[in-house]
Computed example of a mutant assay.
Amino acid sequence: MTEVRSLLEVVSARPASDGAGVKLKRVMGTGSHQLMDPFLMLDEIKADGSGDLGAGFPAHPHRGIETLSYMKVGGFRHEDHLGNQRTIQSGGVQWMKSGRGIVHSEMPVPENDQLHGFQIWLNMPAAQKMSPPEYSDIKASDLPVFSEAGWSGRLLLGELEIDGEQLSAPLKREITEPLLLDLVFDGNGTMTLPLSQKKLMVFVYRGQVKVGSKSGRIIGNSELGVFSEGDELELSAEEKAGVLILAGNPLNEPVVQYGPFVMNTREEVMQAVQEYQRGEFLD
């Protein structure tokens, strides 16, 4: 029997600043929601003009995580010590596996003075944290899109079945089976998606959505809904709305974070700090 997922709680995004003065909304990454295993962080960046973008995100290190940046409007230019120099545009995705260590920068590239996008941190299994770093980017035209009456979606990460058709994004991860989906309601629509991963969150970046057909509960703009386990997600909207859906299976491993380093023990974090200070990330 199919079990529809219920809304457990709603968390409001908080204003924050990161990098060299970039203003953003921290949706996930503070307090009790710091570790929504396997997700570690979700930030929304939205700016009109350059005043909110500061000097971007200058060169900085990472170890032990994967980052995924998705731009709805505008882009980001990525550079790293491996020699990658790439820019994604509206609708594109950047993915970076920091593994044992990478030093990179991300500089905003507004489109008509507009910028709107998200960055997600995804934890890595302990056995893979010291693997070689990697980078790739995906154009908007290479991402699967689909539409139903009243709503449409873009699959950014993972796999999803829609009306018997299996959709697969260019980027997939096997162990945690994470899924990232951008869903847009065009004014009045109801959608049901088969989502069986143990963890499920819905962030509303525009408008508001109603959960299920019976609960009447609402997730409003700039709010994150945390859901129970189950088989299906039901959402509806009476006006235009946009949501980011994150789903995945937890690693259930210890997490110790110090800024951009996410490992399993304090000793491993201290080792990362010392190796970065000695310049060993650049070897």
Rank of each mutant, 00 (worst) to 15 (best):
E3K: 15
V4T: 08
R5L: 06
R5F: 03
L8G: 13
V11K: 15
S12D: 12
S12A: 14
A16Q: 08
A16P: 10
A20C: 12
K23Q: 14
G29D: 07
G29E: 13
Q34N: 11
L35V: 05
D37Y: 00
L40S: 11
M41I: 09
L42T: 09
I45F: 11
K46W: 05
A47P: 13
G49I: 06
S50P: 06
G54V: 04
G54K: 05
G54C: 09
A59N: 07
H60Y: 05
H60G: 01
H62Q: 03
G64P: 06
I65P: 08
E66F: 00
S69H: 10
Y70K: 11
M71P: 03
G74W: 01
G75A: 06
R77L: 03
E79F: 07
L82T: 02
N84D: 13
Q85M: 15
I88T: 00
Q89D: 11
Q89I: 01
K97Y: 09
G101V: 00
G101I: 01
P108T: 02
I120E: 07
Q128K: 15
K129L: 04
S131N: 15
S131H: 15
S131R: 14
P132R: 12
E134L: 15
Y135W: 09
S136V: 03
I138M: 10
F146T: 00
S147W: 10
G150Y: 11
G153Y: 01
L160R: 04
L160H: 07
E161M: 12
I175S: 13
T176V: 05
E177W: 00
L195H: 08
S196K: 11
S196P: 01
Q197C: 01
K198W: 01
V204E: 04
R206Y: 02
V211N: 00
S213A: 10
K214M: 05
E223C: 02
E223K: 08
E223Q: 15
V226M: 09
E232M: 03
K240W: 10
A247D: 03
M263N: 00
E268F: 00
E275V: 08
